[in-house]
Design a protein around this nucleic acid. Structure first.
Length: 344
DNA sequence: ATGCTAACACAGGGCCGCTA
DNA sequence: TAGCGGCCCTGTGTTAGCAT
C-alpha cells in the first residue's frame, strides 16, 4: 500500500488552523498574516508529527519557488567514469547547489521518434518542474529553435559553455578557448617554428569557432602563413605531405585528433618532439592514462559548473548576472619542444 | 490593531457528457 | 463509438476581509 503524503490542509487540521497559516509558518516571510508564537509552535509540531514535506510541484504550480534546479542535456551525460568530459561539470553543479541550499533535478525524458531528446515533449515543457535550468551540450538548428521558445516563455536558464542564440540573450558560463589557444600558439612559436598548423572541426560549435579564432589572431599578429586542416581530411597522405612541406608544429583541437595525428605520423616514422611539436586544445580524456608528455590547456569544468549554479540562483532572485568566460590553465609539456618544461 | 479564514490563481491531466 | 470541449481536481502561495 502506498501511503498518501500529508498536505498543508492535513497539517492545518491537526494544528487547528487554516491552510494559509501553515503556508505562512512554513515560508516564514513577511506577510499580511500574523501568527502568534503558540500557533507557530502548534503548526511546527503538527508538521513534525505528520512528517510533512512541501510538494515541490504544487509550489511551482502556485507560482512560488521550490528550490529545485533542473539539469538538461540533449545527450545522456551521466558520467560512467571520473575521466568523462561531463564529470567535473556535474561535480561543480552538485557542490554549488548544496552550498546554496537547492536540490537538483536531472531531466531524463526519453528520446522522441527521431532519437532526439527534446525540451518540448507532446506539447509540454517538463523543465518548468524546476525554478530554473542548467543546460549542457551542443546545439543544432532544431535545438536552438526550441531553446529560443523556452527563453521567450521566460524560463530562467544558464548554459554551461558559450552559446550563440541570435535574438535571444542567453546567459552562459564559458571557457576562454580563444585566449587559451592563443597562449598555446605563442608557446609553440616561442620554441622557434615559423609555421603553426591548426587541426580542428569546422564551425558547427562555438567552442571550435573560439579555438580557431585564437589561432588566427596569433598567426596574423605575427604575419605568418595560416593553415587549417579539417578532421575529415586528416589521413596518412595528408600528414606525409604536411610534414614534407614543413608544417611541423601543430595545434590539435582535442585528444582524439591528437592521437590520430600521432598514430599517422608514427606510421611514417615521425615522433614528437623530434620531428614535430604540438599542443592539445583541451584536457586529454580518452585512453588508458594521461599522456604526461603532452602540452595542453586545462578547461575549468568544475568551476564552470559551480559558477553556472551561482548565476542561475542570482537570476532566480531577480538579479541580472553577466555571462562570464573563465580562463583555462596552460600546461606546458615536452610535446611543444625541447626547451619546454612542465610546471604546475 | 491583531490573528486568523476563505477564496482564488496557477498548469495540466483525467474524466464527463455531448455531438456526429 | 470516437472525438471533442469543458469542467474538476491537485497542493500551495497570496491577499481581501472578517471577528475579536
Amino acid at each position: 500500500m502506498v501511503l498518501k503524503r500529508p498536505t498543508q490542509k492535513e497539517v492545518a487540521q491537526r494544528a487547528g488552523v487554516s491552510q494559509a497559516v501553515v503556508s505562512q509558518v512554513l515560508n516564514d516571510r513577511p506577510s499580511v498574516i500574523r501568527v502568534t508564537r503558540e500557533t507557530r509552535e502548534r503548526v511546527l509540531a503538527a508538521m513534525r508529527d505528520l512528517g510533512y514535506v512541501p510538494n515541490a510541484a504544487a509550489q511551482r504550480l502556485a507560482g512560488g519557488r521550490n528550490r529545485l534546479l533542473g539539469v538538461f542535456t540533449y545527450e545522456p551525460v551521466f558520467p560512467t567514469s571520473t575521466r568523462d568530459f561531463y564529470y567535473p561539470f556535474l561535480e561543480g553543479i552538485e557542490e554549488a547547489a548544496a552550498a546554496l541550499d537547492h536540490d537538483l533535478l536531472l531531466h531524463t525524458r526519453p528520446a522522441g521518434p527521431d532519437g532526439e531528446r527534446r525540451i518540448y515533449h507532446n506539447g509540454g515543457n517538463r523543465l518548468r518542474l524546476a525554478d530554473g535550468t542548467l543546460l549542457l551540450g551542443f546545439l543544432d538548428d532544431a535545438r536552438r529553435e526550441e531553446l529560443g521558445r523556452l527563453l521567450d516563455e521566460g524560463h530562467p536558464v544558464v548554459f554551461i559553455g558559450r552559446r550563440d542564440l541570435p535574438g535571444h540573450p542567453l546567459p552562459f558560463v564559458g571557457a576562454d578557448y580563444a585566449g587559451a589557444t592563443a597562449q598555446a600558439a605563442r608557446a609553440l612559436l616561442a620554441q622557434g617554428p615559423r609555421r603553426v598548423l591548426y587541426v580542428g572541426a569546422p564551425h558547427q560549435h562555438e567552442s571550435s569557432v573560439d579555438r580557431e579564432r585564437g589561432y588566427l589572431e596569433v598567426i596574423r599578429a605575427h604575419g605568418l602563413e595560416e593553415r587549417v586542416i579539417r578532421p575529415e581530411d586528416l589521413g596518412g597522405e595528408t600528414v606525409r605531405e604536411l610534414l614534407a612541406q614543413g608544417w611541423r608544429s601543430l595545434l590539435l583541437e582535442n585528444d582524439r585528433l591528437a592521437r590520430r595525428w600521432i598514430d599517422l605520423a608514427h606510421a611514417l616514422g615521425c615522433e614528437a618532439p623530434r620531428d614535430y611539436t604540438f599542443a592539445v586544445l583541451g584536457d586529454p580524456l580518452d585512453g588508458p592514462e594521461l599522456p604526461q608528455e603532452w602540452a595542453y590547456f586545462h578547461i575549468p569544468r568544475r568551476e564552470m559548473g559551480r559558477r553556472a549554479v551561482a548565476m542561475l540562483v542570482d537570476l532566480l532572485s531577480g538579479k541580472q548576472p553577466e555571462s562570464v568566460v573563465l580562463p583555462c590553465t596552460w600546461r606546458p609539456g615536452p610535446s611543444i619542444g625541447q626547451a619546454a618544461e612542465r610546471s604546475g
